[in-house]
Design a protein around this nucleic acid. Structure first.
Length: 260
DNA sequence: CTGGGGAAGGGGCCC
DNA sequence: AGGGCCCCTTCCCCA
Protein backbone atom coordinates (compact mmCIF):
# COMPACT_ATOMS: atom_id res chain seq x y z
CA UNK A 1 0.00 0.00 0.00
CA UNK A 2 1.44 3.30 -0.97
CA UNK A 3 2.05 5.42 2.02
CA UNK A 4 0.94 8.43 0.06
CA UNK A 5 -2.56 7.17 0.50
CA UNK A 6 -2.40 8.19 4.08
CA UNK A 7 -2.38 11.72 5.22
CA UNK A 8 0.23 12.43 7.77
CA UNK A 9 -1.16 14.27 10.68
CA UNK A 10 0.48 16.26 13.40
CA UNK A 11 -0.95 15.92 16.80
CA UNK A 12 -0.24 18.15 19.70
CA UNK A 13 2.86 17.13 21.51
CA UNK A 14 1.48 18.07 24.85
CA UNK A 15 0.24 15.45 27.21
CA UNK A 16 -3.23 16.85 27.06
CA UNK A 17 -4.75 15.99 23.73
CA UNK A 18 -5.90 18.82 21.56
CA UNK A 19 -9.37 17.51 20.97
CA UNK A 20 -10.37 20.16 18.51
CA UNK A 21 -7.40 19.23 16.41
CA UNK A 22 -8.15 15.56 16.71
CA UNK A 23 -11.72 16.11 15.74
CA UNK A 24 -10.82 18.08 12.67
CA UNK A 25 -8.61 15.43 11.20
CA UNK A 26 -10.33 14.10 8.20
CA UNK A 27 -8.68 11.67 5.88
CA UNK A 28 -9.70 11.76 2.30
CA UNK A 29 -9.03 9.31 -0.38
CA UNK A 30 -8.33 10.63 -3.78
CA UNK A 31 -11.31 12.21 -5.51
CA UNK A 32 -10.45 10.52 -8.78
CA UNK A 33 -12.11 7.30 -7.84
CA UNK A 34 -15.37 9.04 -7.35
CA UNK A 35 -15.39 10.09 -10.96
CA UNK A 36 -16.42 6.53 -11.64
CA UNK A 37 -19.31 6.78 -9.26
CA UNK A 38 -21.72 9.49 -10.26
CA UNK A 39 -23.75 8.78 -7.19
CA UNK A 40 -25.60 11.53 -5.45
CA UNK A 41 -23.04 12.89 -3.10
CA UNK A 42 -23.95 13.00 0.49
CA UNK A 43 -23.87 16.51 1.89
CA UNK A 44 -20.51 17.03 3.45
CA UNK A 45 -20.42 17.99 7.05
CA UNK A 46 -18.29 20.98 7.79
CA UNK A 47 -15.57 18.75 9.06
CA UNK A 48 -15.18 17.37 5.60
CA UNK A 49 -14.85 20.54 3.67
CA UNK A 50 -12.37 22.68 5.48
CA UNK A 51 -9.48 20.33 5.91
CA UNK A 52 -9.70 18.19 2.87
CA UNK A 53 -6.58 16.41 1.87
CA UNK A 54 -6.34 14.96 -1.55
CA UNK A 55 -3.47 12.63 -1.86
CA UNK A 56 -1.99 11.71 -5.20
CA UNK A 57 -3.09 8.12 -5.30
CA UNK A 58 -6.28 7.52 -7.15
CA UNK A 59 -8.48 4.58 -6.50
CA UNK A 60 -9.43 4.03 -10.04
CA UNK A 61 -9.02 0.59 -11.45
CA UNK A 62 -5.77 1.18 -13.19
CA UNK A 63 -4.07 2.70 -10.25
CA UNK A 64 -5.51 0.14 -7.96
CA UNK A 65 -3.79 -2.40 -10.08
CA UNK A 66 -0.58 -0.53 -9.74
CA UNK A 67 -1.10 -0.28 -6.08
CA UNK A 68 -1.71 -3.92 -5.53
CA UNK A 69 1.24 -4.92 -7.59
CA UNK A 70 3.58 -2.66 -5.72
CA UNK A 71 2.21 -3.34 -2.31
CA UNK A 72 2.27 -7.05 -2.39
CA UNK A 73 5.83 -7.18 -3.50
CA UNK A 74 6.60 -6.62 0.13
CA UNK A 75 4.93 -9.80 1.18
CA UNK A 76 5.62 -13.38 0.20
CA UNK A 77 2.28 -13.27 -1.49
CA UNK A 78 2.81 -11.87 -4.92
CA UNK A 79 1.17 -12.25 -8.25
CA UNK A 80 2.49 -15.06 -10.32
CA UNK A 81 3.23 -12.71 -13.13
CA UNK A 82 4.09 -9.08 -12.91
CA UNK A 83 2.57 -8.57 -16.32
CA UNK A 84 -0.71 -9.85 -15.07
CA UNK A 85 -1.05 -7.67 -12.06
CA UNK A 86 -4.79 -7.40 -12.37
CA UNK A 87 -5.09 -11.06 -11.69
CA UNK A 88 -6.25 -11.80 -8.19
CA UNK A 89 -3.50 -12.73 -5.85
CA UNK A 90 -3.07 -16.16 -4.48
CA UNK A 91 -2.77 -16.80 -0.80
CA UNK A 92 -3.42 -20.45 -0.91
CA UNK A 93 0.09 -21.55 -1.59
CA UNK A 94 0.95 -20.39 1.87
CA UNK A 95 -0.34 -21.89 5.01
CA UNK A 96 -2.31 -19.74 7.35
CA UNK A 97 0.28 -20.30 9.99
CA UNK A 98 3.39 -19.13 8.26
CA UNK A 99 2.40 -16.58 5.70
CA UNK A 100 2.63 -13.58 7.93
CA UNK A 101 6.31 -13.13 8.17
CA UNK A 102 6.29 -13.68 11.89
CA UNK A 103 4.08 -10.73 12.64
CA UNK A 104 1.30 -12.67 14.22
CA UNK A 105 0.84 -13.74 17.77
CA UNK A 106 1.17 -17.33 16.72
CA UNK A 107 3.99 -19.21 18.33
CA UNK A 108 7.07 -18.49 16.28
CA UNK A 109 8.76 -21.29 14.47
CA UNK A 110 11.73 -22.70 16.36
CA UNK A 111 14.18 -22.12 13.55
CA UNK A 112 13.44 -18.47 13.03
CA UNK A 113 12.56 -17.08 16.38
CA UNK A 114 14.22 -18.88 19.22
CA UNK A 115 17.13 -16.52 19.32
CA UNK A 116 15.25 -13.46 18.14
CA UNK A 117 12.48 -13.71 20.66
CA UNK A 118 14.83 -13.97 23.57
CA UNK A 119 16.77 -10.87 22.77
CA UNK A 120 14.60 -8.50 24.81
CA UNK A 121 12.79 -9.93 27.78
CA UNK A 122 10.50 -8.16 30.23
CA UNK A 123 11.88 -8.39 33.73
CA UNK A 124 8.37 -8.28 35.15
CA UNK A 125 6.55 -10.97 33.22
CA UNK A 126 9.36 -12.62 31.23
CA UNK A 127 7.61 -11.99 27.96
CA UNK A 128 10.15 -11.76 25.16
CA UNK A 129 10.36 -9.42 22.21
CA UNK A 130 12.55 -9.36 19.17
CA UNK A 131 13.10 -5.63 19.36
CA UNK A 132 13.79 -3.16 22.09
CA UNK A 133 10.96 -1.01 20.85
CA UNK A 134 8.57 -3.90 21.27
CA UNK A 135 9.75 -4.49 24.80
CA UNK A 136 9.47 -0.81 25.61
CA UNK A 137 5.93 -0.60 24.41
CA UNK A 138 5.00 -3.73 26.29
CA UNK A 139 6.47 -2.39 29.51
CA UNK A 140 4.78 0.92 29.05
CA UNK A 141 1.42 -0.69 28.46
CA UNK A 142 1.50 -3.60 30.85
CA UNK A 143 4.38 -3.95 33.26
CA UNK A 144 6.01 -0.65 34.00
CA UNK A 145 3.55 0.50 36.60
CA UNK A 146 5.83 3.23 37.89
CA UNK A 147 5.72 5.11 34.63
CA UNK A 148 2.04 4.57 33.98
CA UNK A 149 0.01 7.66 33.36
CA UNK A 150 -3.63 7.96 32.70
CA UNK A 151 -5.02 9.50 29.55
CA UNK A 152 -8.78 9.67 29.68
CA UNK A 153 -11.13 9.82 26.74
CA UNK A 154 -13.47 12.75 26.89
CA UNK A 155 -16.11 10.86 24.95
CA UNK A 156 -16.30 7.80 27.15
CA UNK A 157 -14.91 6.39 30.36
CA UNK A 158 -11.96 4.64 28.82
CA UNK A 159 -8.49 5.37 30.07
CA UNK A 160 -5.18 4.65 28.42
CA UNK A 161 -1.63 4.53 29.64
CA UNK A 162 -0.24 6.31 26.60
CA UNK A 163 -1.27 9.28 24.56
CA UNK A 164 -0.83 7.27 21.41
CA UNK A 165 -3.30 4.68 22.58
CA UNK A 166 -5.74 7.42 23.50
CA UNK A 167 -5.37 9.08 20.13
CA UNK A 168 -6.03 5.78 18.46
CA UNK A 169 -9.11 5.30 20.58
CA UNK A 170 -10.41 8.80 19.97
CA UNK A 171 -10.40 8.09 16.27
CA UNK A 172 -13.12 5.55 16.95
CA UNK A 173 -15.23 8.47 18.17
CA UNK A 174 -14.27 11.08 15.61
CA UNK A 175 -14.14 8.71 12.62
CA UNK A 176 -11.93 10.93 10.50
CA UNK A 177 -11.74 8.67 7.45
CA UNK A 178 -14.79 9.35 5.34
CA UNK A 179 -15.90 7.54 2.21
CA UNK A 180 -16.93 10.10 -0.35
CA UNK A 181 -19.08 7.59 -2.15
CA UNK A 182 -21.45 6.73 0.64
CA UNK A 183 -20.39 9.04 3.45
CA UNK A 184 -19.59 6.27 5.85
CA UNK A 185 -16.85 7.14 8.29
CA UNK A 186 -14.10 5.00 9.73
CA UNK A 187 -11.54 5.30 12.43
CA UNK A 188 -8.56 4.25 10.38
CA UNK A 189 -7.45 4.70 6.81
CA UNK A 190 -7.17 1.02 6.03
CA UNK A 191 -10.69 0.40 7.23
CA UNK A 192 -11.75 2.96 4.68
CA UNK A 193 -9.51 1.28 2.15
CA UNK A 194 -11.24 -2.03 2.73
CA UNK A 195 -14.60 -0.36 2.59
CA UNK A 196 -13.78 1.22 -0.75
CA UNK A 197 -13.30 -2.25 -2.17
CA UNK A 198 -16.96 -2.85 -1.51
CA UNK A 199 -17.63 -0.07 -3.98
CA UNK A 200 -15.00 -0.99 -6.53
CA UNK A 201 -15.55 -4.70 -6.35
CA UNK A 202 -11.83 -5.19 -6.11
CA UNK A 203 -11.04 -8.67 -4.81
CA UNK A 204 -7.30 -9.16 -4.88
CA UNK A 205 -7.20 -12.28 -2.71
CA UNK A 206 -8.09 -15.44 -4.53
CA UNK A 207 -8.46 -19.05 -3.53
CA UNK A 208 -6.76 -21.51 -5.83
CA UNK A 209 -8.95 -24.33 -4.61
CA UNK A 210 -12.17 -22.89 -5.93
CA UNK A 211 -11.20 -19.65 -7.68
CA UNK A 212 -13.26 -17.57 -5.34
CA UNK A 213 -11.87 -14.14 -4.66
CA UNK A 214 -12.09 -11.90 -1.65
CA UNK A 215 -11.58 -8.28 -0.90
CA UNK A 216 -10.17 -9.03 2.52
CA UNK A 217 -7.19 -11.21 3.30
CA UNK A 218 -8.68 -12.42 6.55
CA UNK A 219 -11.83 -13.48 4.81
CA UNK A 220 -9.77 -15.56 2.44
CA UNK A 221 -8.10 -17.21 5.40
CA UNK A 222 -11.47 -18.03 6.86
CA UNK A 223 -12.55 -19.37 3.51
CA UNK A 224 -9.46 -21.56 3.24
CA UNK A 225 -10.59 -23.29 6.40
CA UNK A 226 -13.61 -24.54 4.51
CA UNK A 227 -11.24 -26.47 2.24
CA UNK A 228 -9.36 -27.93 5.15
CA UNK A 229 -10.16 -31.39 6.44
CA UNK A 230 -8.93 -30.38 9.86
CA UNK A 231 -11.13 -27.89 11.66
CA UNK A 232 -9.10 -25.84 14.06
CA UNK A 233 -11.68 -25.11 16.71
CA UNK A 234 -12.96 -27.93 18.88
CA UNK A 235 -15.72 -28.01 21.45
CA UNK A 236 -14.35 -29.19 24.77
CA UNK A 237 -17.63 -30.81 25.66
CA UNK A 238 -18.53 -32.80 22.58
CA UNK A 239 -15.24 -32.66 20.65
CA UNK A 240 -17.04 -31.41 17.60
CA UNK A 241 -14.80 -29.24 15.46
CA UNK A 242 -15.51 -26.01 13.63
CA UNK A 243 -13.78 -24.01 10.97
CA UNK A 244 -14.16 -20.75 12.86
CA UNK A 245 -13.95 -19.70 16.44
CA UNK A 246 -17.17 -17.78 16.05
CA UNK A 247 -18.94 -20.95 15.01
CA UNK A 248 -17.56 -22.74 18.03
CA UNK A 249 -18.70 -19.91 20.28
CA UNK A 250 -22.11 -19.99 18.72
CA UNK A 251 -22.24 -23.73 19.20
CA UNK A 252 -21.33 -23.37 22.85
CA UNK A 253 -23.70 -20.51 23.48
CA UNK A 254 -26.66 -22.12 21.82
CA UNK A 255 -26.15 -25.09 24.05
CA UNK A 256 -23.81 -27.91 23.32
CA UNK A 257 -25.76 -31.07 24.02
CA UNK A 258 -22.79 -32.49 25.89
CA UNK A 259 -22.24 -29.40 28.01
CA UNK A 260 -23.00 -29.48 31.75
C1' DC B 1 -29.30 -24.64 13.70
C1' DT B 2 -25.20 -24.66 10.94
C1' DG B 3 -21.89 -23.07 7.68
C1' DG B 4 -20.02 -19.55 5.08
C1' DG B 5 -19.22 -14.79 3.12
C1' DG B 6 -18.91 -9.74 3.81
C1' DA B 7 -17.60 -6.10 6.53
C1' DA B 8 -15.55 -3.85 10.25
C1' DG B 9 -12.98 -3.05 14.95
C1' DG B 10 -8.97 -3.28 17.60
C1' DG B 11 -4.29 -4.92 19.14
C1' DG B 12 0.51 -5.99 18.09
C1' DC B 13 4.52 -5.25 15.61
C1' DC B 14 7.74 -3.02 12.39
C1' DC B 15 9.76 1.00 10.50
C1' DA C 1 6.89 8.11 19.55
C1' DG C 2 3.91 7.79 16.07
C1' DG C 3 2.30 6.08 11.59
C1' DG C 4 1.08 2.31 9.01
C1' DC C 5 0.26 -2.52 8.08
C1' DC C 6 -1.14 -7.17 9.22
C1' DC C 7 -3.68 -10.30 11.70
C1' DC C 8 -7.25 -11.95 14.66
C1' DT C 9 -11.70 -11.57 16.00
C1' DT C 10 -16.45 -10.39 15.93
C1' DC C 11 -20.89 -9.31 14.11
C1' DC C 12 -24.40 -9.58 10.70
C1' DC C 13 -26.72 -11.69 7.09
C1' DC C 14 -28.05 -15.34 4.07
C1' DA C 15 -28.57 -20.10 2.16
Amino acid sequence: MPRSFLVKKHFSASKKPNYSELESQTVYISPFIYDKYPLPMIPQPEILSTTAYFTPLAWDTGLLTTFFTADYKKSPISPSSSDDSSKPLDLTSFSSEDDDGGKTSDPPSPASSATEAEKFQCSQCSKSYSTFAGLSKHKQLHCDTQSRKSFSCKYCAKEYVSLGALKMHIRSHTLPCVCKICGKAFSRPWLLQGHIRTHTGEKPFSCTHCNRAFADRSNLRAHLQTHSDVKKYQCKSCSRTFSRMSLLHKHEETGCSSAQ
